[in-house]
């Protein structure tokens, strides 16, 4: 198990290295002269020169990459050109909105999808199964940001149960903060839960066809016992893959849905960064998002090994 984790950790580091190279290339190499790109057409040569030295553009590419990557490692993300404050400070507040939102949605989606999928599998072929599958089919098709608008209309405007938008900050306390994140999380979770429930259902059904379920039945387990004791854990293996993939969708979805709920998350920061051509902000936030996705992939791999003993030896 430790060896498995060590291998995965090594591959995590390699992925991060490769991803950082990709981000660096796109942002700092492809535009050509980053300084003139950021300042636009009307910039004075003096301003460009000043920015160039500020960004360290007079140094070689390798030196720039090392300085940037090294800075990221030590928490120094550079200084935002438009805000004139360290990017790290900007990001720190925002990520405390986006990341909890994505995780909240992930937990919601998993908590809804697994029992629903299991239920549909147990009732396969009956009316309830078709009903559940029909609803999930619809759930997949609904754009989450529009569903968010509907939720606001229903639960914030018609019935004033949740705030319509905004974020009081974590300093306002856990309860109010979670209240502000609930509607966006539900909006995000619905399509993902629909997908996950379908995966869970087909995975359970497939596992029910496995030889070891027949063995279990021959031992005297009822069908329900066979599902609970043997099918569930084996069916989780493909479901875990999907949960891992969903995190990246949820993180991306969180950034989009922040617009619906006026949440001060990474999304607002990055879209401002794009309009103001503040490449330093864009570069750091993108790298941070990719870092989050790769880390979750790593955690899913570890969870895999916990569920499936066959993987531990590799």
């Amino acid at each position: 198990m430790i060896r498995f984790a060590a291998f995965r950790l090594l591959s995590l580091c390699l992925s991060l290295l490769a991803a950082s190279l990709v981000v660096f290339c796109v942002i700092e190499v492809i535009p050509g002269d980053t300084a003139s790109f950021m300042l636009g057409l009307n910039a004075s040569p003096e301003a460009e020169a000043a920015l160039r030295s500020e960004l360290g553009l007079d140094k070689g590419l390798v030196a720039r990459y090392l300085a940037w990557a090294g800075g990221m490692l030590t928490g120094d993300f550079g200084t935002s050109y438009t805000y004139r404050v360290p990017v790290a400070d900007l990001v720190a507040q925002r990520i405390l909105v986006s990341l909890p939102l994505a995780l909240y949605a992930l937990i919601l989606s998993t908590l809804i999808a697994l029992p629903v999928g299991l239920l549909a599998a147990a009732l396969r072929g009956r009316a309830a199964d078709y009903g559940i599958m029909g609803i999930t089919q619809l759930g997949i098709a609904v754009p989450n940001f529009w569903f968010g608008m509907l939720l606001v209309l229903a639960f914030a405007i018609t019935y004033r149960i949740f705030p319509a938008g905004g974020f009081p900050g974590w300093e306002a306390g856990f309860g109010p903060a979670m209240r502000a994140l609930t509607l966006p999380a539900v909006a995000l979770a619905l399509p993902q839960a629909s997908i996950l429930a379908r995966v869970m259902r087909s995975s359970v059904i497939e596992t029910l066809d496995a030889d070891f379920i027949r063995t279990a039945r021959a031992k005297g387990l009822s069908e329900g016992q066979a599902i609970r004791r043997h099918a569930f854990r084996n069916a989780l293996i493909p479901v875990l893959t999907i949960i891992g993939l969903q995190f990246s969708f949820l993180l991306a979805g969180a950034i989009i849905i922040e617009n619906v709920f006026y949440l001060p998350g990474l999304g607002r920061l990055i879209f401002q960064g794009i309009t103001q051509r503040d490449l330093i902000v864009v570069e750091s936030v993108v790298m941070l998002l990719v870092f989050a996705v790769i880390t979750v992939t790593f955690l899913v791999d570890i969870a895999y090994a916990l569920v499936d003993p066959r993987l531990r030896r590799r």
Partner: peptide, 16 residues
């Protein structure tokens, strides 16, 4: 590539 959701790729391309 899986580590870069479509949105992130779009952000990168749009930024430059």
């Amino acid at each position: 590539i899986f580590a870069f959701p479509s949105l992130v790729i779009a952000i990168l391309i749009t930024a430059v």
